[in-house]
Write a protein that binds this DNA or RNA. Sequence first.
RNA 1: GGGGGCGUAGCUCAGUUUGGUUAGAGCACUCGACUGUCACUCGAGAGGUCGCGGGUUCGAGCCCCGUCGCUCCCGCCA
Length: 592
Amino acid sequence: MTDFATSLRTHLAGSLRASHVGTSVRLGGWVHRSRNLGGIVFVDLRDRDGLVQLSFGTDWASAEAIAAAAAVGVESVVQVEGTVVLRDAATRNSEMGTGEIEVRATAIRVLGPAVTPAIPVARGKGEKLPAEELRLRHRYLDLRRPELQATLVLRHHLLQETRRYLAERGYLELETPILTKPTPEGARDYLVPSRVNPGEFYALPQSPQIYKQLFMTCGFDRYFQVARCFRDEDLRADRQPEFTQIDIEASFVDQEDILAMAEGLIGSLWRTGGQDAPAQFPRMTYADAMERYGCDRPDVRYGLEIADYSDAFRPLEFGITQAALARGDRIRGIRIPGGAAWSRKQVDELESLAKGAGAGGLLRVRKADGKYDGPIAKFLTPEAEQAIALEEGELALFVAAADRISNPALDRVRQECAARLGLASPDERRFLIVTDFPMFEQDPTTGALGAVHHPFTSPNAADMAAFPDEPHRWRATAYDVVLNGLELGGGSIRTHDPAVQSRMFALLGIGDTDEQERRFGFLLEGLRAGAPPHGGIAFGFDRITMLLAGATSLRDVIAFPKTTTARSLFEGAPTPVPPEGLAELHIRVQEG
RNA sequence: GGGGGCGUAGCUCAGUUUGGUUAGAGCACUCGACUGUCACUCGAGAGGUCGCGGGUUCGAGCCCCGUCGCUCCCGCCA
C-alpha cells in the first residue's frame, strides 16, 4: 500500500478509517462543503481518495480555528491538524467511506484560497451537471468531481494493465514519430508546417501503421505502443480528433496468434474494469455477419436475424418482388415476435428508418388471430404463407433490393426493433471476432477499388490463387473485435512481399512505380531488405475506457477533450497566430 | 457541407403556447442567528446585455430574418 505521507501531510483524507481512531493527522485537501451550526463547524475535506468530515468544536478547537473554518470558501485548499475519532452511532454516515469516523480539527490553514467556483464541484442529490460547454470551459473545476477522477483513475489502471499484459509476453513498447509524412488516402491529415523547409509540411500520424511494420522488418518481433493518433474529420460523441490506440504488431504470426493475444488482452482489461469476459470470443465471418445481420459488427445479444425469403416470393404475382427478383436481387427480411401488435404508425417509423438507410421501402405482413394480414397479405398464396411460416403475433418486414441496399436498411430496422422490445440487456456482454473481410470495396459508380481495411493488409492467398484476375472477390486476412455491436479494434496480417505490396498499390490506383516509391518507398525499401511475415491489431483505447467507465461520451474519459468543432474551450485552441509567426513558416492565410 | 435540439442570475431551470406594468424559483454568494450536521436549518440582501445583430410593432425574453456557441445525427471518418 502506497504511503501518501509527505512533509505537509500524514494521510490522504479519504483513506481514513476506524482503524485510525486516536491517530493525530495532518491533512491537505479541498473544501468540498461546509456546515456552520454556530458553536460547531463541519467541513467536508476532499482529496483524490474521497471525503472526510472535519469537526471544529469549542471543546477542542480554538475560537480562531473555528472562525477560520467558518470563513473558508468551498474549493479552497487547506491544511488541517487534528485527531481521528469514532463518531457516535447516531451520527455515522454510511454513504461515506470515512463515515464511521471524523477528524476533530484543532487548526486550519488556508494554503490556496479559492474564488467562488464558476460551476459547482459538490452537487446536491439529483442536481444536474452544468452545461457541457461550461464543464469544458472550466475543466479545472470539472476534473475535481469524484466521478471524473474515478474515470481517469480507471483509465490509468487500464493503461497499466495493457503494459503489464503485453510486456509480460515479450512485446516491446517502442515509440514512433509524431511529425510524420502526409498520407493522401484515408482520413484528412493534420498538417504541421516546416520552418526550415519552406512550403513543406509534416503530418500528425493517423496511426503508426507503417512504422510498426518497419519495426517488424528490423526484427523487433513484438511491438506495442499506446499511440496518440490524429484525424482531421468531423467529430461525434465517440470520435475525437486526437485519440489513443493500443497499437500492436508481431512477427512470424498468423491470424490465430494475433487473435489469441487480443482475446487475452481484452479479457484482462475487462477484468481490470470489474467485469468478466470469456477466455475465447466466438468467431463469425464477414459474409456470415452481413447475411444474418446486415452489418460487419453485429450486436448478437439478440436474434431478429435476417433471412432470405426470395424462394417464397418467386412464384407470386406481385410486381415489386417480381421486378427485384428479375434484376437478380433478393427478398430478405426479419421476423419480429410481438411486432404484430405495433400500430400502423409504429411500422411506418421503421419504414422511414429503412428509407433513410437507402431502401425504397419495407414490405410488411403480420400474423394475427391466425391470419396473415397487411398490405402484401393478399398476394400471398398458401404455399408462400407456409414458406414464410410466421408464428402468431409476429410481424415480418422485407426489403426487395440488392444486398448493398438491404443490408444497411435491415441492420437499422433490426436495431430499432431490438431497442423497442428491450432485447439488448445492458449488463450482457457478447464479444465477437469478425474475420474474412473483403480485401476491396468497389465504388458503385466508378468501379474503382478501395481498401476495406488498408493497403498493407495481405489478401487471402487461396483467393488470390483461385481468382487471380478478380481481385474484388479476394478476401483479406483482416479481423475486427466487436462487443455488443461496437468495434473495439481491428487488424490484419500484412503483406510482407514487396512485389505483392506493389501490386496492391497498383490495384488501388497507384500503378506508377515512381509514385509508389515517392509515397510508400520507405515501406517498400524495408520490405525488400528482408521482411518476416507479420501482422497486428489496434484497439480504440478511449472507447474501451468509455465502455468500462459506463460513460456515453469520449469527452468524459479524456482529461482535456475537444468540442464537436475541434476546439479546446479551456485553453482556447486553435487560435490565430500573429503575422510574424506565419511569415516565419512561409504561410499566408487566405481570406474567406 | 446538410438536418434536428438547446442558449433567461455564478449554476440548474420556470416564464415563450395567446407580445402588455418592475423577468421569477431553488442552489451558490454576502450579512445575521444557531453546539452534532452531513444537500444543516432559519432570517435578510445582493445578483439580469433574456447568446449576439437586425427587423415587425404603440410595446419583444416571447413573432420574423441573420449570426455565434454547445450538442446529437447524416455526409465524412477504421
